[in-house]
Simulated assay, not measured.
Amino acid sequence: MTADLSAIKANLTECLRTSDIKVSTLTGERNMLNNSLIKVTEELNGLKSCPAGWRMFSCPCYFLSNESGSWEKGREDCKTRGADLVVINSSEEQMFLSNFTKEEIMAWIGLTDSVKEGTWMWINGAPLSLQPFQYWRSGQPDNNGGHPSLGQEDCAHIIYGGEGNNWNDLSCKTNMRWICEKMV
């Protein structure tokens, strides 16, 4: 019985040694692939560039309009530029956009509840509720405090140059700048 246990122990020890070698080999291969991916990504980013007047963050390019208009006018202008109003997909993108300009300005983003009041949707069809982050100002969205005589606030904007929670809802007819986003 002792000989059987010794044989089993020797077999398990050999299996463990073989597994350690395989893990070490796979770890080395993974590290080489990660290094290759980093190099390819750097080369690809070197090939990408944004059009004049646009700024790059990650892969998309962003354009802050110089003119003002309604949410719909902003969206149409973005489309003529091969883009659309910005859809904010991460906290990093939100921080980038919050610091897009040093001056405090307001600009339309691609978020609206015009289809169904209180159900905020991005222009790409994604519901805001699926995202783990939202950056509404305190008390927002408020649809004009629920006063029908003041009109509907169905479009969202961001206050650039601000920090943290800087989204607000306004009437889509309000004149302000907008920010476009497009992939390069």
Rank of each mutant, 00 (worst) to 15 (best):
S58I: 09
R55E: 12
G82S: 13
N11Y: 08
S24N: 12
R75C: 00
R177D: 00
G145S: 06
K39G: 10
E42A: 13
R55A: 14
T41Q: 15
E153V: 00
R55G: 03
A83N: 02
K182F: 06
T2R: 15
H157G: 10
P132T: 10
K73E: 04
G110T: 02
N168E: 13
T25H: 09
A3G: 08
A3Q: 14
E67S: 15
G110C: 08
C50H: 04
S19R: 13
L97D: 00
W178D: 00
W178K: 00
I179T: 06
I158M: 15
K116M: 10
I159D: 09
L5M: 13
S68T: 11
I179R: 00
S90M: 05
Y160K: 12
T101H: 07
L130C: 10
E93V: 08
G74D: 00
T101D: 10
N89F: 05
D169C: 04
R30P: 00
D142F: 03
R75D: 04
S58F: 05
W120L: 02
M1T: 13
V87E: 09
G82W: 05
E14N: 11
L26N: 12
D84L: 01
K73S: 09
N35H: 08
Q131Y: 10
S149Y: 09
K39L: 12
E163P: 03
S90R: 07
G53Y: 07
E14C: 06
N124K: 06
D142N: 14
S149Q: 14
L64Y: 07
M121H: 09
W108D: 00
N11E: 13
R137D: 07
E103A: 11
N165H: 11
G146Y: 02
T18C: 00
D4E: 15
S65R: 02
R75Y: 03
Q152R: 15
E103P: 00
E76P: 00
S65Q: 03
S171L: 02
S90P: 01
